[in-house]
C-alpha cells in the first residue's frame, strides 16, 4: 500500500481531489463560460461535468441573480474581492436553496482572469431551521394561551360576588385591585344586583394588601354604581393602616356605610331588611294595589 506522501501532486491528482470534495466548485472566465466544474457541483444541478463545460454559468445555474447587477462573478471580478451569499438555483422545475462564496481567479501576473465559486445545497438546513422555528412558535403560542387562560381564571376567581342572604351580596376582594379588576368587579356587582335585587352589597377588603387612593376611588365608584341601581354599599375589613392611608388621601367615603367586621355588616344589613319587611307588611294593602298596577304596566 502506497503512502499518501508518495503520490505525486500532479494535475490529475489535484482534479481527483477537487472531484472528491462534496461541495460544488466551478471556475468561469470573464465571459461567464464555465472552464471547470467538479462532480459534486454538476450533480447538484442534475448534470455531468462534461455537460457543463464551455456553457454559460447562467444557463446552468439559473439563479435570480444571474445576468443582473448582483451577479457574483461580475462583482468579484470587477471589485477584486470575495463575495458570499445565499440564493436559489433552478434544477429542472425545482428551486434549490444554496449558499455560495466566490473569489476572483488571477493568473501568475496577478491579472484577474475569472472567478472561482463554490456552493452547497442548504435545503436540509433550511428545512431544519424552519421546523425548529415552527416548534418554537407553537410552543410560544401555547404558552401565551396558557397565560391568557390563567389570567382569565384569576380574574374570574378574584371577583366573586356571593349572595349570602336574601337581598345581601358580598364581594370579598383579595389581592391587588387595579382599575381593570375594579371595573370587572363593578360590572359583576351591578349584574348581580340586577339579578338578585339585593338591597345591600358588602365589600370586604381584608384581603387587599395595598389600599391606596386609587383603590379607595375604585371602591367609591362601585358604591356609586350600586347606589344608582338602588342598593346600599357597606365596606368592611378596613385595618388601621388602610384607615390612615384613606384618611391621608383625602378620599371621602360618604356614600358607603363602614362596618368593622363582616359580621357587623351582615347584622346591620339583616336588621335593615327585617325592618323593611315589617314596613312592607304595614303597607300590604298598598302593595296589593301596586301589584295590580304593575301588571297593567307590563
Amino acid at each position: 500500500m502506497k503512502d499518501i506522501s508518495e503520490v505525486q501532486l500532479d494535475e490529475g491528482f489535484l482534479s481527483e481531489i477537487i472531484n472528491a470534495i462534496t461541495s460544488g466548485i466551478f471556475v468561469t472566465d470573464l465571459e461567464h463560460n464555465i472552464l471547470m466544474i467538479n462532480k459534486a457541483g454538476a450533480r447538484m444541478v442534475g448534470k455531468r461535468p462534461g455537460d457543463c463545460f464551455d456553457r454559460k454559468c447562467y444557463d446552468i445555474f439559473k439563479t435570480p441573480m444571474c445576468r443582473t447587477e448582483f451577479c457574483t462573478c461580475d462583482i468579484v471580478t470587477s471589485k477584486d474581492r470575495a463575495n458570499y451569499g445565499e440564493t436559489t438555483m433552478q434544477v429542472g422545475d425545482r428551486q434549490v436553496p444554496i449558499e455560495y462564496s466566490s473569489r476572483p481567479l488571477k493568473n501568475y501576473e496577478g491579472k484577474i482572469i475569472g472567478c472561482v465559486e463554490n456552493f452547497i445545497d442548504i435545503s436540509e438546513r433550511l428545512e431544519k431551521d424552519r421546523i425548529i422555528l415552527e416548534q418554537k412558535e407553537s410552543l410560544l403560542k401555547k404558552r401565551e394561551e396558557d397565560i391568557r387562560h390563567l389570567q382569565d381564571e384569576i380574574l374570574e376567581l378574584s371577583t366573586p360576588v356571593i349572595q349570602v342572604w336574601d337581598g345581601i351580596l358580598t364581594l370579598p376582594l383579595i389581592g391587588t385591585l387595579d382599575s381593570h379588576r375594579a371595573h370587572i368587579a363593578m360590572e359583576r356587582v351591578l349584574q348581580s344586583i340586577e339579578q338578585t335585587r339585593a338591597a345591600f352589597v358588602i365589600v370586604d377588603i381584608t384581603g387587599v394588601p395595598i389600599v391606596d387612593a386609587d383603590v379607595a376611588r375604585h371602591i367609591l365608584q362601585t358604591a356609586a354604581a350600586a347606589r344608582l341601581m338602588g342598593s346600599e354599599t357597606l365596606l368592611t375589613g378596613v385595618g388601621p393602616h388602610t384607615a390612615r392611608v384613606i384618611s391621608d388621601s383625602g378620599v371621602s367615603l360618604e356614600n358607603i356605610i363602614l362596618k368593622g367586621r363582616m359580621t357587623d355588616a351582615l347584622q346591620y344589613a339583616i336588621a335593615q331588611l327585617e325592618e323593611r319587611r315589617l314596613q312592607m307588611k304595614k303597607f300590604s294593602h298598598f302593595m296589593g294595589a301596586l301589584g295590580e298596577e304593575g301588571e297593567k304596566e307590563e
Partner: peptide, 10 residues
C-alpha cells in the same frame, strides 16, 4: 335610588 317600585315605596 331604589331597586324597584316596591322598595321605593318602603
Amino acid at each position: 335610588f331604589a331597586l324597584d317600585v316596591e322598595q321605593a315605596l318602603v
